[in-house]
Nucleic acid binder design. Structure first.
Lengths: 137, 137
DNA sequence: GTGAATGCAAATGGTTTGCAACGTA
DNA sequence: TACGTTGCAAACCATTTGCATTCAC
């Protein structure tokens, strides 16, 4: 849980709430909505306020430990570690597919070559239709 | 402005407000925020209510004339015509670069082949850093 | 004339903020 | 002890909704 070290390095305090929030982000592989993180945290430590969760997530994002992206409704959060993969989310059933990073790097490179624009698909939750839903199963 | 025909076909009424909103979407090449559309409409026809704009945009989206996507903050709208291009938005300066569609189809195909997941990047506003901002100019 | 569309105002709901109390270092 | 952190409640703000009035057909 490198976030913890990062916080220390920045002189930020390591409270039980923050540990728990970092744990949620770290342990659950999917991207999480604020609501889900709040539920996870409050289950293990009832009484934690959602403002605290939001503030901590903002803190972790600023520290580079967490990515935050827009989803259809609200934000989703995901830990920011190397060895990335993209998240494909089915707009029909909501399921997530982890997509190997190298499938998209060539496209990113092509865009960079032609337009000088550095696309960052890591920060994007990519929506579409999963195989199951496309087949109508 | 094919939206107009589409509306007629569906038996929907063609009000001046709707014409104006369709015009905004159609005439301005960029993707627009609701706020920008409201400003455009109200400049040409003061008194138009923002609820009307929101409702019309929803209508046009349902009719397939308009795409709506999440941006970092709020939604953006864009007319849905063939001959598409992707929108790259610089998260630093906010400028938009139109990206030719075929730069990304191979990546979409690769994802479809491996995961059976049909990515739809047309509906996504892709963020990143533009050439100017990357160079610090 | 009639049902759909509009304007207005109030509600919604995820996220943010102000402030007093609390806890870590 | 001192300052950062938390909990609480209220504020925010883009978007949505209910309802009476108006208008396109």
């Amino acid at each position: 849980m490198s976030c913890v070290f990062t916080l220390k390095q920045k002189g930020l305090k390591l409270t039980p709430q923050r540990r728990l929030i970092a744990e949620a982000i770290h342990d659950i592989p999917n991207h999480l909505s604020a609501e889900e993180i709040i539920a996870y945290v409050q289950e293990k430590m009832p009484g934690v306020n959602k403002s605290t969760v939001y503030r901590t997530l903002e803190l972790l994002e600023g520290a580079g430990c967490v990515y935050r992206s827009r989803m259809d409704d609200g934000f989703v959060y995901h830990h920011a570690e190397e060895g990335h993969h993209h998240h494909l989310v089915c707009r029909n059933c909501g399921n997530t597919v982890d997509c190997d990073e190298d499938l998209l790097v060539s496209a990113e490179q092509a865009v960079a070559d032609r337009y000088g624009f550095q696309v960052d698909l890591k920060h994007v939750v990519i929506s579409g239709v999963c195989g199951g839903c496309a087949r109508g199963t």
